[in-house]
């Protein structure tokens, strides 16, 4: 997302720049986007898919929230265990590794949905609207294709880990179970980018993601 209020467009257009106190380090994301936004890609026959998409979005948000809080609880519990009970939680490290994978790969799709992936858009931003739109369609399609490819490779990889039967030493959980998020996350991300291409092809504005319009008027979006 970061490029929408790019310097190239002139800091003056960036409300944050006008009022530095607002350009806070605020890191939170408004994820309950207006219905019209979420539905951007899902018009006509695609409407039922919109419901599914919303469900996926809510699931991702829940996974991120729970994942991060679980990491915090798990790590704090480990410290408390060591200090108060003189007993480290040996599963703590394995649980955290699992949570990092979970959060990363659930978050990739979520970030794609909200146009939050980091880009260097200095050149892209200089292009006229039409060209930007065309480029965005190409970027979205190629990115989507690469995500599908990774979904396939990660499926193969997870399957081969399943084949070896490797287990986590402490929790004795089969490693492949901790990895099932990979193919899923990449696939959801791929779908997000295909949808982005679709929205750009069917709508007048330039869309950065299904929910985020990449245009001058939109610079104050909270995302």
């Amino acid at each position: 997302m970061q490029d929408r209020d790019g310097q190239e467009r002139g800091a003056a257009q960036n409300p944050n720049a006008d009022n530095p106190s607002q350009a806070s380090s605020e890191t939170s994301v408004t994820t309950d986007s207006p219905a019209s936004e979420t539905a951007a890609a899902f018009t006509g026959v695609l409407k039922p898919l919109g419901i599914l998409d919303k469900g996926v979005a809510m699931f991702e948000a829940a996974v991120l929230t729970v994942g991060i809080l679980a990491m915090a609880v798990n790590s704090v519990a480990n410290v408390i265990g060591r200090f108060i009970f003189g007993q480290s939680l040996y599963f703590s490290e394995e649980l955290n590794q699992f949570l990092v994978i979970l959060v990363t790969f659930a978050g990739v799709g979520f970030a794609a949905r909200h146009g939050r992936h980091i880009r260097m858009s200095a050149i892209y931003d200089e292009l006229p609207d039409k060209l930007r739109k065309a480029l965005m369609v190409a970027i979205a399609l190629i990115t989507g294709a690469i995500m599908f490819l990774l979904a396939w490779y990660s499926f193969e990889y997870v399957y081969s880990v399943y084949g070896t039967g490797r287990i986590a030493p402490v929790t004795q959980v089969p490693i492949f179970l901790t990895l099932v998020w990979l193919p899923l996350g990449f696939m959801i991300t791929g779908i997000q980018y295909v949808l982005t291409a679709l929205v750009n092809l069917t709508r007048p504005d330039v869309y950065l993601s299904v929910t985020v319009v990449d245009s001058y008027e939109d610079t104050e979006t909270q995302l």
Partner: peptide, 13 residues
């Protein structure tokens, strides 16, 4: 926590 998760994912990927 949700936004932390998002940022974590964006950086960790």
């Amino acid at each position: 926590a949700k936004s932390t998760g998002l940022i974590t994912a964006v950086v960790f990927i």
